[in-house]
């Protein structure tokens, strides 16, 4: 039998935020993991939930969370297998950009890697990606999934 060593986040390590919704393309995830490994950073995959206007902002979102859970587990597992420490999040807001803004308002990140979804798929719209590039407090990279 072979055992891998367990990667753990050390205090003060750079943090790379990967906000996404709906799904995360494998090629984007691989790229984010490569960047995190190269920078000896902690990967922070954040599944973003949108709270519909008819609900209070602090409402539990069971159905959406059910979709997020297996995906976050898979992302976390892929990163840990690659030796990259992970600190996953589920964050919510009225829109995807609102959710991601809430996250960077309470946590520090050294880089943001935002996936651009393929046309017709759930995720950041081109307009939201532009907003992200313009307003994010740190260096932001937009990754397009492999064709």
């Amino acid at each position: 039998m072979r055992w891998r060593h367990r990667p753990s986040a050390r205090d003060g390590a750079p943090r790379i935020l990967v906000p996404f919704a709906g799904s995360l393309d494998q090629s984007v995830l691989d790229a984010a993991i490569r960047i995190a490994r190269a920078e000896d950073a902690v990967l922070v995959p954040a599944y973003l939930l949108v709270v519909p206007l008819q609900y209070e902002e602090d409402s539990p979102l069971r159905d959406q969370v059910k979709l997020a859970m297996p995906l976050l587990e898979a992302v976390e597992r892929a990163a840990l297998k690659a030796g990259v420490p992970v600190d996953a999040r589920i964050e919510k807001g009225r829109t995807l950009t609102h959710a991601v803004k809430r996250l960077w308002e309470v946590e520090d990140f050294d880089r943001i890697v935002a996936p651009a979804p393929p046309p017709g798929r759930e995720g950041f719209t081109p307009k939201e990606l532009t907003w992200l590039l313009t307003n994010s407090p740190t260096e932001t990279v937009v990754l397009k999934p492999a064709a």
């Binding site: 986040a9 205090d11 003060g12 939930l49 602090d58 539990p60 979102l61 069971r62 969370v65 600190d87 999040r89 589920i90 964050e91 919510k92 309470v106 946590e107 520090d108």
Partner: peptide
Amino acid sequence: LSHDEEISLAALRRLAVVLG
């Protein structure tokens, strides 16, 4: 709590809200 632990704790509280 260290700075990183404070962040982790706040994130856990937020997750608990989302999960109800």
